[in-house]
Every structure is written in C-alpha cells, then in structure tokens.
Design a protein around this nucleic acid. Structure first.
Length: 245
DNA sequence: TATAATGTTTGAAC
DNA sequence: AGTTCAAACATTAT
C-alpha cells in the first residue's frame, strides 16, 4: 500500500475529522493513548510516507511500513494499533508504527522534500542528489531525505521512464539526466496517485513485476537485492543505459 | 503451506 | 566513535 501517493489518499479520507474532538482512544500501541483524549484534531498532514495527526503541542506520526492498513467507520478482524472515535465517526490503523512527537509538524518536517507537496522543491532535490556521488541511483531515489514519498515501485518506474539502468552511480550520470530523474519522479508520483484513485495502478506498470519490456520486447531483468538498500530492481538491459565513467 | 512483498528502525558487530 | 548489517516487526496474496 504505502508509497507517498497512497498516503495522500489516506489524508484525504481522514480529513473529515479535522477540527473534531477525540472522544475515545484505544489500540495496542504502546504510546500514551490518553494524551489524545478530549483533544481536538488540529490538522491532518502527510509528508512522504508519514501520516501526521496534529494536536495542540504534539502530533502523532503514523508509518504504515510494508503491511500497515487503516479503516474508516469500520473495523477489521484484527486488533487496531490505534483507534480514534469521534461524535460523527471513527478510524483505525493496523500493523503500523505509531509515535508521539513533541512540538509542531512545521518544526520537524521540510515540506519542500515531500514529492507530493505543493511546495516540493526540485532544485533542492537535485542539489542533494548530485551530492550523493558514490550512491547507486536506485538507492538515491529511495532516499527519503531527498525524495520523501518515493518507494520501490516509483523507483523502478521512474528509472524505466528516464532510461537509466538502476545500478548507475550518481556521479556517472549526466547532470541533465539527473534533472530529468527529479522531474520525472515528481510527475510519476501524480500519475501513481491518479491511477491509484481509480484502482488501476498495476495496469500501468511498465517494468515493475513485468517480464517483457513494453518498448523493445526483450526480457525484463529482475535483481532481487540491488544496492545498499537491497531492494528489487526491474529493468530492461536494452533500453536503460548503464552509465559508466 | 511457504514465500515474498509498495519499509523502516534498532542494536549488535566490526 | 562511526559505519554496516542482520534482525525485528507484521499482513496478505499467491
């Protein structure tokens, strides 16, 4: 479920509870749940893959990790990690990481780093990317400090769209191509969002989980554990350029 | 039924 | 002391 665009959808679904008072808190999270009771939800935000619920002097950070899920006005069979009930309705989160963070979200997060944000700053991302000289591009794209919200699917798709072989070192990729990667990452995130809303994301995969290149028909290569982050990379050896010095 | 997958944090080991 | 790496966590479709 959870790459940046999915968290945007989550935020939209929960925004109906903005400004509402929490009547009941429950769940098996080890955080101090009572802290939210009787308090008003001041805001619902998202930053990359983080979902944030703001209260007066603290906020809740929810990360769905690999298997997290949520429900609005309904329950799953399993025990919720966190459940908030209001006069009008309720929502629950399952199998996720829940944290209380003191202070204001604006003091913690740089919104310009969020690929889904209105204030996403491509120049900033480019500068950080160029600085990661010795990194493989497949690792840099997953770097949440640079591309908050980009996950493994987006990584693979963006590298296919830009015709870059994922094992290319950042320092060997031309600057113009790096700029294109930054631009394409942002654009693809919004394609992902649009398709996800229509429940047709998978239909649009070009390389991720695919076996044949849509452009040239040759076999898609799958490397199970690529780079520092040891994540799956799908790519076309014919269409995607391995940059070497 | 065993396996693998859209992810991150932690703490041991070096 | 800083870096690296495996383990832990947890769900569901195939």
């Amino acid at each position: 479920m959870p790459e940046g665009p999915s968290i945007v959808i989550l935020r939209e679904e929960l925004s109906q509870f903005k400004g509402k008072k929490v009547l009941k808190v429950s769940g098996n999270s080890k955080i101090e749940l009572e802290r939210m009771k009787g308090k008003k939800v001041l805001d619902m935000r998202s930053w990359g893959k983080h979902f944030l619920i703001s209260f007066d002097d603290f906020f809740i950070r929810i990360h769905l990790l690999m298997f997290g899920s949520y429900r609005v006005n309904e329950l799953k069979e399993t025990a919720p990690r966190l459940r908030l009930e209001f006069k009008a309705g309720e929502f629950s989160f399952y199998a996720c990481s829940v944290k209380i963070i003191e202070g204001d979200v604006n003091d913690v997060y740089d919104w310009e780093r969020d690929t889904m944000s209105d204030v996403w700053n491509p120049e900033k991302a480019y500068k950080s990317l160029v600085a990661e000289k010795e990194e493989l591009i497949c690792d840099s794209l997953l770097d949440q400090e640079i591309f908050a919200g980009v996950g493994n699917i987006i990584k693979n798709e963006v590298l296919f769209l830009t015709k870059v072989q994922p094992e290319s070192l950042v320092k060997d990729i031309p600057r113009k191509k790096l700029k294109e990667i930054v631009k394409t990452a942002r654009e693809y995130c919004f394609d992902f969002l649009r398709w996800k809303r229509k429940f047709e994301l998978k239909k649009h995969y070009t390389v991720h989980t695919k076996s044949v290149c849509p452009d040239c028909g040759s076999k898609i290569v799958l490397k199970q554990k690529m780079g520092r982050r040891q994540r799956r990379s799908f790519f076309c050896e014919n269409c995607q350029v391995l940059y070497l010095k």
